[in-house]
Amino acid sequence: MRTFGISDRSLHLIDAPEPTPATGEVLVDVHTIGVNRADVAEVAGAYPPPPFLTPLRTADGAEFCAPGVEIAGTRRDTGEEVVALVAGNGYAEVVAVEESALLPLPQQPTTPADGIADGDRPADGNPEATGTASDRFAFAASVLEAAATVVSNLHLETQVRAGERVLIHGATGSVGLTAVQFAKARGAHVTAIAGSDTNAALLRRIGADVALNRHDGDVLEQIAAGDGPRSFDVILDVLGGGDALEKNVSALSEYGRLVIIAVLAGATGTLPVMQVMLKKAHIIGTTLRFRRGEAKAQVMEAVRSQMWPLIQSGQIRVPIQAEVPFEDAAAAHQILRAGGHLGKVVLRVR
């Protein structure tokens, strides 16, 4: 099978034997792969695979791990069309998957949701942006990881409720767009942060009550000068460290919950402990990739029960930034590194 190895912080297409499924695993013939920032970070050497991930082997027996956590394809044993979250090795034509990490392919909505049009593109007008998925496999690979991230953090971890004030950083990626729409479906007041006026306008169209361009100045100063909330019950953060940690804590309300899902601004920062104590705040850090077994199954069940109805009805919709041939995975990574993309990048295997 074709897969990708990593060397010198670059992807290299190689041929390797198919994986042998362990007990409780099945083989999936992959049609499409969702491209995520975790994949880019792994290639850069900043996000190693979990220690429990079974490595692949080259024809001469050398072990390696491929990136990739989100796939859609066909179960080889039953022929069922499925989507799966894996701990790694997803950039391959065949992937061994825990049965607990599988869900049936979601139905692609036949009518578009309000707010996101088929022609929506990022602010730079990238002509590769296609807007909609070309088929059901591309659609499935564009929604699962974002749905799982959002439901695990805004439902399982923070239990966002109607009337709560939610701040979402990085709101025009697939996770951010999904989070805005999910929080609004829960009845929350949403403030969303974008990287351009064009994308801020799109966030308002899909339901954000307040949408700000981070390039217009310090986000907290913009919040303080605006008409929206000054503090937040829940903050979904992709920045992590640097001065973002202290600023996010300062923006929390009493009993507020800050959930950190990425470290784009740095892996370390200063925690204002007294503010955390006085606000009775909760600081939560999560990652999907290091969950397995019952923990992974809990997230997948929440996706099925909480997210699939909203996604299949079109209430939550994420545009496709680009569908890229499998062998051109490096080009897909470059789209994410360049920033400014809107929605999801998908690799087409077959």
Rank of each mutant, 00 (worst) to 15 (best):
N126A: 14
T149H: 10
A101D: 10
I116H: 00
G131Q: 10
A138F: 04
G90P: 09
Q108F: 00
R161H: 14
D120W: 06
G88C: 12
A162L: 07
E157R: 15
V166W: 10
T110G: 13
N153R: 14
A133R: 05
N89M: 09
F137G: 04
T132G: 07
E157S: 15
L103I: 07
L154P: 05
A147W: 09
V97C: 12
I168R: 02
L167Y: 07
P122A: 12
S152N: 15
D118H: 06
F139L: 03
H155K: 09
I168T: 02
T172N: 09
E145M: 15
S152C: 11
V95P: 10
A148W: 06
T158G: 05
L103E: 11
G125Q: 12
H169L: 08
A117S: 15
G170W: 10
I116G: 00
T149P: 06
L102V: 05
G176A: 02
L103T: 04
D114A: 15
T172K: 02
G119D: 12
Y91G: 02
S174W: 04
H169F: 07
G176K: 01
D120I: 01
E128W: 14
T178C: 08
V94F: 00
A129W: 03
E99N: 08
V180S: 01
F137L: 06
Y91V: 07
P122L: 00
S134L: 14
V143D: 02
V97D: 09
V180R: 02
E164G: 08
S152I: 01
R136I: 14
G88M: 05
A146G: 11
G115C: 02
F137D: 02
N89K: 07
P112V: 08
Q107P: 00
S134M: 13
V166R: 11
A141Q: 03
A113M: 12
E128F: 12
A146W: 11
T110K: 13
A123V: 00
D124L: 12
R161A: 15
T110P: 00
V151W: 08
G173V: 08
R121Y: 04
D118N: 03
A92F: 04
S142E: 00
V94E: 01
P106Q: 04
V180L: 02
